[in-house]
């Protein structure tokens, strides 16, 4: 199984993602944003960072990269695509996920651990979690405030496409537990088909006890086991 880790100019979580994929026993390969052709990959990951210095809007210029002309059909054909942090912003800009990520309501760059509640375990990316499980995973972003029009937000909730939500220690999505002002404490969503996931928190930075948490591991093992199930 082969997983593409796309690198845009200004990506800075690409090595963490590469290592996370290897840690769960899959093969990872970097794909530079000018490269074309993703047919040899089973999944595509868009890393965090500050592609193109966040100029214009985070993800707006990366979305126009040559590689995105292949990521979009890959996703539309049902290929698993995961965007983390800046990768989530790129997926929204590309129209693969609805909504947009705007400036944190605090106007501050927030870099700390958050608690996430797993809302769905029937996705490619979350099957190894328990329903309602509370995770501790770091965030590091200035533009993570998820916004969309009222109809889109309602559709997301009604169809259960919110996969992760910011919660407090007791698992409640309170205002105090919301680090950026996201509507309904949304931290991660999928597309309608369920093969594209975008999330602001960084599971690839929660892979080692030594670094504070291993709560990100199950996301990558979920992806690998659903892929090996599909190819078997």
């Amino acid at each position: 199984m082969k997983v593409a880790v796309v690198t845009f100019p200004g990506s800075n979580c690409d090595y963490d993602l590469y290592k996370a994929v290897q840690q769960v026993g899959a093969e990872a390969e970097f794909v530079w944003h000018r490269e074309r052709g993703l047919d040899r990959f089973d999944a595509v990951l868009l890393p965090g960072g500050f592609s193109y210095g966040d100029y214009l809007r985070p993800g707006a210029i990366a979305r126009m990269s040559p590689v995105m002309e292949d990521v979009i059909p890959f996703a539309e054909k049902g290929g698993p695509v995961l965007g983390i942090c800046n990768g989530f912003q790129v997926l929204c800009e590309a129209g693969l996920l609805p909504g947009a990520l705007v400036r944190n309501d605090s106007l501050k760059f927030r870099s700390h651990d958050v608690r996430l509640r797993v809302e769905r375990v029937d996705t490619l990316f979350t099957s190894d979690y328990a329903q309602g499980q509370i995770l501790r995973i770091p965030i590091a972003h200035g533009d993570g405030n998820f916004e969309a029009d009222t109809d889109t937000l309602k559709a997301l909730e009604d169809s259960g496409r919110v996969v992760f939500r910011y919660v407090d220690a007791s698992g409640e999505p309170t205002e105090a537990a919301n680090p950026n002002g996201s509507w309904h404490n949304i931290a991660g969503i999928t597309n309608e088909a369920g093969n594209v996931l975008g999330m602001m928190p960084h599971p690839e930075r929660a892979m080692e006890e030594l670094l504070g948490s291993t709560d990100g591991v199950a996301l990558f093992t979920s992806l690998v086991s659903s892929l090996s199930g599909a190819s078997a």
Partner: peptide, 8 residues
């Protein structure tokens, strides 16, 4: 195409 995001 690029300069504005119609969502926001």
């Amino acid at each position: 195409k690029l300069l504005a995001n119609p969502v926001t």
